[in-house]
Design a binder for these strands. Structure first.
Lengths: 194, 194
DNA sequence: TATTTACTTGACACCGTGTCAAGTTGACAT
DNA sequence: ATGTCAACTTGACACGGTGTCAAGTAAATA
């Protein structure tokens, strides 16, 4: 509807996202993206210095489009600690599908590209903060599982809610998104709550 | 001690293992391995048709050396279901460090190499069977968490015990192996047992 | 002594990334 | 209409990594 006149840069970001979304993370080449945007491969390099930067920019673009911040704030409005935990699982767990494609691509280059690793870690730290906040709310009302320190509980929740775990359950095991969310809520509660 | 006269093939496998062990999964190149074995890069290709095959062969070699089968059978001797679950976490969880390096390399090429993906999946299915057996023992004594089907419980345990989860907790979060094992035992029990 | 086996040397094709230099095209300003 | 600037194109190329090929060497074996 809003066909203002999309900048090439935005077209590139949209297309990259779309290409990554449907399947292959690292299999998407610069040439593929250029072709899909209908510009020359070299024009890509006029907008982004390298593949890693393009992927990172796509990630930021995604966050912007989805307004992740606003969504995250929803879980902060919860009253009880357990409620907050559940809402947090809901919010983040339902955001993962949106970023799965790009995450896969970033994870794949993380080992060889320092900048990509930094960008990925940065985003994952944000998720970890969400986990920490939920854990802290549990702790505050004294309902945190006594055999876990606050930090360990955060680590555990963070791992439970990792993109990798989501991938394994949804893709390898064929779980539906609903099942994933429901089971994660319960598992998180069982693991963390007294 | 047993310096019988190690075949070049075995030297290659040992060296590949060693190189992968200390750090970089996909950063280890064919040339690096050749150099470390002190043969020409081309000699590598006389023994293994390609990198993926070498990695797969290294995995099998590792399993052989560690006699994984024997270790797995230990968990089968458990009496109660909960005991069995705990033993299973112990066995597999303590085996992961041995295969972490090679796993990382295989996981990295899994997306582009069909054969590597098949080899990896094959091994992971074996782990899944271990998980299924533990879950089945719980079910048999009617102590399986009622909100999980047997298959879901298996999927969940399998994900909890994945190499990725191990990596995240041990490497990213800096957990000790002991902490990992202890917490995993408890988390698995909390998640799966009634 | 001839043959075979295991290996070496060096060249090369292929792919994907990233770089460079020289054009083209359209908009806008004078 | 002319000049100029920005965005883009075209085509070539270097680099690193994988995998292939052909010819040569050297030690063990027949």
């Amino acid at each position: 509807m809003s066909s203002e006149k999309i900048s090439t840069r935005t077209k590139i970001l949209k297309t990259t996202w779309k290409l990554l979304e449907n399947g292959g993370g690292n299999a998407v080449r610069m040439a593929d993206i250029a072709k899909a945007v209908k510009i020359s491969r070299q024009a890509l390099y006029l907008h982004f210095p390298n593949r890693a930067d393009l992927l990172i920019a796509t990630t930021r673009y995604l966050d912007e489009v989805h307004d992740i911040e606003e969504k995250l704030s929803a879980s902060r409005s919860a009253t009880s600690g357990t409620d907050r935990l559940e809402k947090w699982v809901d919010v983040w767990g339902n955001y993962i599908p949106n970023i799965y494609g790009i995450s896969k691509a970033l994870l794949a280059i993380k080992d060889t590209d320092k900048e990509a690793a930094a960008a990925w870690n940065d985003r994952m730290q944000a998720v970890r903060h969400g986990c920490a906040a939920a854990v802290s709310a549990l702790k505050a009302e004294n309902s945190l599982n006594a055999s876990l320190t606050e930090e360990q509980a955060t680590d555990l929740l963070w791992t439970l809610l990792s993109v990798r775990a989501w991938e394994q359950l949804r893709v390898e095991c064929g779980w539906s998104q609903e099942t994933y969310i429901a089971q994660m809520k319960e598992t998180a509660a069982r693991a963390l709550v007294k």
